[in-house]
Amino acid sequence: MSTPLPRAWLVFLAASTLSQLASSVLWFALGLAAASHGGQVAALVLTASGLPRLLLVLVGGSVADRVGARRLLLCTESAMVMVCLALAAGLQATGPTPWLLAAAGLASGVVSAFSLPALGSMPRRLVDDVALPRAMALRQSLSQAVLLAGAPLGGILVVTVGLPVIAVAGAVGFAAVLAVLAVIRPRRDIGPSAEPFWRSLSDGARVVARTRGLVGALGLTGAVAAVVLPVSSLLVPLLGQASGWGAGATGVVVAAQAAGSIGAALVVSRTGTARRTGQAVALGLAAASGGVALVAAAGGGALGQAAGAAVVVGAGTGVAVAHLGPFVLGSAPRTHLARVQAWTALAQLAPVVVSANLLGVLAEQVSPGAALCCCATVLGVCAVAATRLRAAAS
């Protein structure tokens, strides 16, 4: 029987999940407000939030390893409390003007570039290596649940309480993480470093390149993200529109994929990961590849087939991510946890910027089914590549 996860990790996970839910609701609500001003404003807000995260995440990882993840998170969560309160005041005074929404997105993007690597490194700072896969799988399942609940909850709250109250609730969520960070002490955090900043930044890339297995694992992470993330966010909605499913039915397919991922992550959080990481990742990606191909074949009205196949996609990717995440974080030297997490975030963010646009063009010029088949093919190649993970790390 598996040993219980540390109480410090469970308390931190509860607080960070609450904060993630509040943030998800807030930014969905602000996305609705931006969309009401037109597509250009909505794109501006998304760019203002996403571009700083992409450009600064490696800097954030270096800072976290230099000053300590807990110290940095105390600063970033405090900054987000102030951003949310300032946003609430601005919304109350002027309403959701385009420049206010863009400023909030920019501030959030800059702060999250520093907080994401630190947050990503916390499991290994609070949990023993033996329990790390279970801890990360539990976090993965809760994150998927938040993503599943954030949009509908945000839609309800926009109508019932309004944007300023939602912004205040976001501040409360970030304050909850602050309260937990004030009392916990990561056993493996570090003190301030006297190393020059430029050397700390370049050292992260050097460690990733020299640590056996990391380059391959990060490359695989990026390839999987490039073709999996657009499935639910872009291609399934386009397929639903082409097939005449309607918004509600299309939402069911997206939710089915999330449910499959949550279920797989919960199983891993109870049982732990398989001994042969590469084979487990390969099997998960092979299942996801088949599931995406079945979703593509469902175009034309086979909604039940699409929903069932989406569950397979979610379960397959859930198994793969639940094994790949601990593999990457567990391979990182303890002195470079946040920097490796920063490279992981960059590996996930950068390819999606390119792949989403390419897949969108393919879906428009040919069909959503053709774009989904392309994703299935790439996932099949990734499944073959994943079989070498264990050999690379041994």
Rank of each mutant, 00 (worst) to 15 (best):
A297D: 09
L178I: 03
T317I: 14
A79M: 10
S62H: 10
C374A: 14
R187I: 09
G330Q: 05
L91E: 10
T97M: 14
R124F: 06
A103T: 08
P164W: 11
L138T: 07
V159E: 15
A287E: 01
C75K: 12
A175Q: 06
A137M: 00
C375V: 02
G109Q: 04
V207G: 05
L58H: 14
V268R: 01
A102D: 06
V381K: 07
G105D: 00
A255M: 07
S16A: 08
A104R: 00
A113S: 10
S261R: 12
G109R: 05
F197G: 04
G191N: 02
V172E: 00
A286D: 11
G300P: 08
C84Y: 11
V130S: 13
A194D: 15
P237C: 06
A255R: 07
H336M: 09
L54E: 06
L5S: 05
V180H: 00
A145L: 09
A217S: 14
V41C: 03
S112A: 14
H336Q: 06
L148W: 05
S24F: 07
L181G: 03
T211V: 10
G380S: 08
S232G: 11
A15E: 03
T211Q: 11
R187C: 08
A363Q: 13
T97N: 12
S23M: 03
Q279T: 14
A93D: 15
V340K: 00
V111A: 09
S121A: 15
V366E: 14
V215E: 11
P333R: 00
H336T: 07
G318K: 01
A102F: 08
L147K: 07
R388S: 13
V231K: 02
L32Q: 15
V292I: 10
A322L: 00
S269R: 00
P52K: 03
A302Y: 06
L303I: 09
L229V: 15
P4G: 05
F174H: 15
V159I: 14
R71Y: 08
G278T: 04
L91S: 09
V172R: 04
L72D: 12
